[in-house]
């Protein structure tokens, strides 16, 4: 009779998984692939996809505001837009993710601290410690772990959106300039105001010039998610590294050697499929955007129809 293992075995899905040392081949594998740890791995794919689904439109909104700001006729707006694109693009991503996020978090807490605890007398910075009153903590210190995780996730979305928004702003700024000037002049000749030409002539036509640059950004964004772990969000690369690492029989029911190559291989397939899917979708989008445009692509489409 063996002594019980020192680690907890957790809940298993299949009845036969109670004693994995007796299993082999397919049944072993099916038990191995349904451990709680693997479930967390599968969930992290959802986390990454959700992050991309929220970040992409948010970054695009940031980029649009940055680009619109950078070509604004109002000087302060122009300065803000230009500074944003220049500074954020210049700072290395990893520095941004290590320091900016902590600073952002502290800025939120500082503002809440000022509002919620006006009669607090202690210094907020004590040496290297950052101390705000408990009511100002974000999330509150006693809230459950999932709230902490959700908050970390949204900090991540915001940071990704700011970083990729700066690149998108530069792409959109260039795209806005690429729209033939004659189009704008024609709009003005029809008596449109500056605002009207911007929204009715410039914005609808700029996407065809912006799409190649934006699709590059999208491809980079897909592969930037491992930066998430710096923020405490466990993404697919973290889990692949964790699950693939050597497991000695002392600490698990499923000992195995260095299997990282298999896990990273699975990630490779996932990324390639995702890239392929993105390419197909972007290609279709490009065809739609080209329709009726004064570009060689638009011209080719027109001739094809005729």
């Amino acid at each position: 009779m063996l002594p019980p293992p020192p680690y907890s075995t957790g809940i298993t899905i299949f009845e036969i998984c109670a004693d994995p040392s007796q299993l082999n081949g397919f049944s072993w594998l099916s038990c191995y692939l349904t451990t709680g740890k693997h479930m967390a791995f599968y969930q992290s794919f959802g986390t990454v996809l959700l992050l991309l689904a929220i970040t992409a439109p948010t970054a695009l909104a940031f980029g649009f505001m940055g680009a619109a700001g950078a070509r604004s006729r109002i000087a302060p707006l122009r300065w803000i837009g230009k500074t944003y694109t220049a500074v954020v693009r210049g700072v290395p991503d990893i520095a941004f993710f290590l320091f900016f996020v902590i600073a952002l978090d502290q800025a939120f807490e500082y503002v809440r601290h000022r509002i919620k605890c006006p009669d607090w007398t202690d210094a907020i910075r004590q040496g290297s410690d950052f101390i705000v009153c408990q009511a100002a903590k974000l999330p509150l210190g006693n809230s459950p772990q999932w709230i902490h995780e959700t908050y970390g996730f949204f900090l991540a979305v915001l940071t990704f959106a700011i970083v990729f928004g700066a690149f998108a702003a530069n792409v959109l700024f260039g795209a806005m300039r690429a729209v033939p000037h004659g189009q704008m002049e024609t709009g003005e000749a029809y008596g449109m105001s500056h605002r009207q030409t911007f929204w009715r002539i410039l914005v609808p036509q700029m996407w065809v010039y912006a799409l190649p640059g934006l699709s590059n950004l999208w491809m980079v964004l897909i592969k930037a998610t491992p930066l998430l772990f710096l923020l405490g969000v466990e993404d697919i690369v973290y889990w692949a590294r964790e699950l693939g690492g050597t497991k000695t029989p002392q600490f698990t029911d499923y000992p195995h050697g260095d299997w990282r190559i298999w896990y990273f291989g699975a990630l490779l397939v996932f990324y390639l499929l995702f890239t392929k899917l993105s390419e197909v979708v972007l290609e279709r989008l490009m065809t739609r955007l080209t329709h009726g445009q004064a570009t060689t692509g638009g011209e080719a489409q027109r001739k094809g129809l005729a």
């Binding site: 680690y7 907890s8 075995t9 957790g10 809940i11 451990t35 709680g36 740890k37 479930m39 967390a40 210190g141 006693n142 809230s143 902490h148 964790e242 690492g245 000695t248 002392q250 600490f251 698990t252 029911d253 499923y254």
Partner: peptide
């Protein structure tokens, strides 16, 4: 009211994630 304990989770036997992911 809740003390949050931070660990690495990758340094057996000190701390690691078990099969259940805890």
């Amino acid at each position: 009211s809740v003390v949050r304990m931070g660990t690495e989770g990758a340094y057996p036997p000190w701390n690691f994630l078990n099969d259940a992911g805890e």
